[in-house]
């Protein structure tokens, strides 16, 4: 890879913009393909189109066109984990999520909880959840987890999350708490099939007890949902109950 192309790739990654590196396998001709256009060697239109598809699918693949094989290597921004509630479980999530590829943001307007000492190196957002969620704008590479148990904080976050493409929405709380929460969200106009997107009780059922174990259960469920694992499938009736 030429230095200029490498540096451009690293600059796009640092700016958290989706970019794809296309390589013609026969001779190593290379280009970067992004929303802003194609930079580098000439790339056939069909390959550019396939590159945008590979970015959407977030899957590296070889594509053949006009007898030439191209390797399409997407570099999407990190997955995001948005946590509402700077509580003990959030500390476990914030520690375990980065090695799994997640950039973590913790939302909590209660300064008493959301301190740099409790969350070293973690992005803390002290706005109210509705405001913070509007600014963070979760996309389909984002997971949202609410942990406060306080409807004043959790409900606006869930209300906002349900209006996004977030691939995972989880809410801490017992079955009874969750049923009451779903009733409140339904009153805000969310349909049952929309509410079924919320995973509550949150996390894989591994009999987790400690804060770290609950964080592990939540992250295992997030990974399972992202990878389409059968283990995380829930009957709609149960999810909506």
């Amino acid at each position: 890879m030429r230095r200029a192309l490498f540096e451009a790739l690293q600059a796009e990654r640092a700016a958290k913009r989706p970019v794809l590196l296309a390589t013609r396998l026969a001779d190593g001709a290379q280009a970067l393909i992004a929303d802003s256009g194609v930079h580098g060697d000439a790339v056939p239109e069909a390959i550019v189109a396939a590159a945008h598809q590979a970015l959407r699918d977030d899957a590296a693949r070889v594509v053949e066109h006009a007898g030439e094989r191209w390797f399409l290597h997407p570099h999407n921004p990190p997955l995001r984990l948005i946590i509402v509630g700077a509580v003990h479980i959030a500390q476990g999530l914030a520690t375990m999520a980065p090695p799994l590829g997640f950039a973590v943001t913790v939302i909590d307007p209660r300064r008493f909880f959301a301190t740099a000492e409790r969350f070293p190196g973690v992005t803390l957002d002290d706005r109210w959840p509705d405001e913070a969620m509007a600014a963070l704008a979760p996309d389909r590479r984002s997971a949202v987890v609410t942990l406060t148990h306080d409807p004043k904080l959790d409900d606006p976050a869930l209300d906002a999350a349900l209006r996004t493409e977030a691939f995972y929405i989880g809410a801490l709380g017992s079955r009874r708490t969750h049923a009451a929460r779903l009733a409140r969200l339904a009153a805000l106009g969310h349909a049952p099939e929309t509410l079924a997107r919320i995973r509550g009780p949150v996390g894989l059922a591994i009999e987790a007890v400690t804060a770290a174990e609950i964080a592990l259960a939540i992250l295992a469920e997030i990974v399972g949902v992202r990878r389409g694992a059968a283990l995380v499938a829930r009957p709609l009736a149960e999810a909506a109950a």
Binding site: L9, Q10, R13, D58, A59, N76, P98, P99, L100, G101
Partner: peptide, 10 residues
């Protein structure tokens, strides 16, 4: 694509 804890390019 997989996300890597170790950023090989960096």
């Amino acid at each position: 694509m997989t996300e890597e804890a170790e950023d090989v390019l960096a």
